[in-house]
């Protein structure tokens, strides 16, 4: 069972809250202070990606975040539920379900954006371990960092 689970409406304003919660739990789990900025940024990237996908395909569905203090590891999983909506007739295609893809593309009014997948590249550059998997529901990004553990 996760140490802390968070489910939030897919709005950009809530991504900051998710970052703050993840950083607080990471600190309590014994993640080294020097790694907390990485946790904060990687979790923010994963949540931003999920929020943008949900806003495109399923705005009523919440984004889920689980933070788990394992033995010696702090693990974060961000899960979107875009896949069934992206694949549905009239949906924008199955892009959202492809690991490593940016499901958001260019949302209306986004202007010039960074190339698709840069958020994933940042996550891969920051997290100690990253696993991106596709489920029937959507994409799961699992990241982990070393921790002192034992603070559940």
């Amino acid at each position: 069972m996760a140490t802390v689970e968070l489910s939030f409406t897919a709005l950009p304003a809530h991504v900051r809250t998710a970052r703050l919660v993840a950083t607080a739990v990471a600190r309590r789990s014994g993640v080294d202070e020097s790694l907390l900025d990485e946790v904060r940024l990687a979790v923010g990237e994963a949540c931003s990606r999920a929020v943008e996908g949900h806003q495109l395909y399923c705005p009523a569905e919440p984004v889920r975040l689980s933070l788990t203090d394992l033995a010696g590891r702090f693990e974060v999983e961000v899960t979107d539920t875009c896949a069934p909506f992206a694949r549905s007739p009239g949906g924008a295609g199955a892009v959202a379900a492809r690991p490593g893809a940016d499901p958001a593309g260019s949302p209306p009014g986004a202007g010039a954006r960074v190339p698709a997948g840069l958020g994933i590249a940042v996550i891969e550059g920051l997290a100690d371990e990253v696993q991106i998997s596709e489920t029937a529901a959507g994409t799961s990004i699992r990241m982990s960092w070393p921790s002192a553990g034992g603070s559940r």
Binding site: L41, S48, A112, R113, V114, L118, V122
Partner: peptide, 17 residues
């Protein structure tokens, strides 16, 4: 205090403009 890839995208967009 914080910058993510969305912010990078805005800066790249500004540079392009």
């Amino acid at each position: 205090e914080f910058l993510d890839s969305t912010g990078l995208g805005v800066l790249v967009g500004g540079l392009k403009r």
